[in-house]
Simulated scan of single mutants.
Amino acid sequence: MNPFQGFAAALTPAGLLWTVLILGAATFLHELAHYALARWQGVGVKSFSVGMGPILLRREWRGTQWRISLLPLGGYVEIDGMAPQPDADGVPRAPTTGFARLPAAGKVAVLLAGPLMNLLLGLGLMTGLFMGQGLPVPDRVHIEAVVAGSRAEALGLKPGDVITAIDGQDLPDRATVNGQEIAGWETVREVLKTPGPHEFTLDRAGQPQRVTFDWQPTVNGERQLLGIQYGPDSRRAGFAEAVSTSLSSTVQVVPQVLAAFGNLFKRFFTLDLSRDQNVSGPIGTAEIVSQAAAASPWALVQVAIMLNLSLAFFNLLPIPGLDGGRILLVLLGAVKGRPLTHEQENAINFMGFAFVMLLMLFVVVRDVVTRL
Rank of each mutant, 00 (worst) to 15 (best):
A113P: 00
L73R: 03
D323N: 01
T370M: 05
I55C: 13
L171W: 11
N308C: 05
K158R: 08
K336W: 08
D170I: 09
E241W: 01
Q207P: 00
G114C: 10
T270Q: 05
D170S: 14
H142A: 15
G24F: 11
I228S: 00
L73F: 09
I143K: 00
P54A: 11
L17D: 08
L359N: 02
A175T: 11
S150N: 09
G6P: 02
V146W: 02
V368Y: 10
S290C: 12
S244N: 09
R371W: 09
I319R: 01
V219I: 11
D203I: 13
G321A: 11
K193R: 14
E181V: 07
Q302K: 07
A295C: 06
M126L: 12
E186I: 00
W298V: 07
V45W: 04
S248A: 15
G90V: 12
L16P: 01
P197R: 06
T187N: 10
R210Y: 04
A304H: 01
Q291E: 12
V368F: 12
F269Q: 05
L21H: 00
A183C: 13
V45M: 08
L202I: 05
L32C: 05
G122H: 04
T270E: 06
A100Y: 04
Q169M: 15
T12K: 01
K266C: 05
L57Q: 03
R338S: 14
L331I: 11
D233A: 15
E60I: 00
A105P: 01
F200T: 01
A109S: 04
Q180H: 08
Y230E: 01
K46Q: 14
S150C: 08
Q224G: 06
M131I: 13
P54R: 10
L129P: 10
G184K: 09
G238Q: 10
L57G: 08
V257W: 13
M82G: 02
A14D: 09
Q277E: 12
T12N: 04
R210H: 14
A105H: 09
F355S: 00
L123S: 08
N315A: 07
P339F: 12
N263V: 14
G42H: 15
F239R: 02
H342R: 09
A148F: 12
R62D: 07
